[in-house]
Amino acid sequence: MKNEEKTKKRKAKRKLSTGLYKLAFFYAVLLLIIGFTLGVVYDSFISKGMEDEINKIIELSTTSEILYASGEEFCTIFPRTMKEIEEQTWKLGVMIDELESKNRIGEDLKLKYFDLQVRDFFLVKKASKECRINPLIIMYFYTNNLVECEECYEQGFELAIARNSLLEKVPIKIYAFEGKTSHSVVNYFKEKYNISSYPSLVFIYLEDGEERWLKEEGLINSNQILEKALTFQNASS
């Protein structure tokens, strides 16, 4: 009896401070909400920045269209403008692609970007005939759904490597379109070039003054892209 009392006396009280764990859960949720809110604000800030950038390029493109319509100095100025537009749209494209894959931008921004690309595509085609610039045009159709297109990420990467090498050698324009978009002109392109699987690349070039195109389905590496690009460029010139 005495021993039992002694043991009781030396026993430390053990309890579970449930309140603390609940409060910690509340704090954790609060922290996540703070982080998420910061993220939303930050993403809307990026979206706004990209939208402004798209508008600036559209302005540049509009100026070129006005110049084309008036026929004044268009062919002198356009090659420089074309290069500038290419660089800007490329950067925007990479950013949009990455942010879209993480669901961080809305559909509107992507459609606006496709608008910009479509507008530029037609302007470049007009300029090709008018000014004999003959840039090599590559249309890249992809989808961000990894299940449907396992090789799309790799293809984007190979295209980027090829672009880095080609930029120094030939005038080049790359247009990247999400295959599952609701954009009507992009869907028209898909029909025209018979796009049914992803990734798909369409090389558009001139041969004997005639526009021709070649479609490649499935992953093709940067060397193959370079080889084709240079062949088509030779045919054009």
Partner: peptide
């Protein structure tokens, strides 16, 4: 930098 930073990284910076 702009595309790599996301809300989790912002939260980590805050923490």
């Amino acid at each position: 930098f702009l595309i790599y930073v996301d809300f989790i990284i912002l939260l980590s910076v805050f923490l």
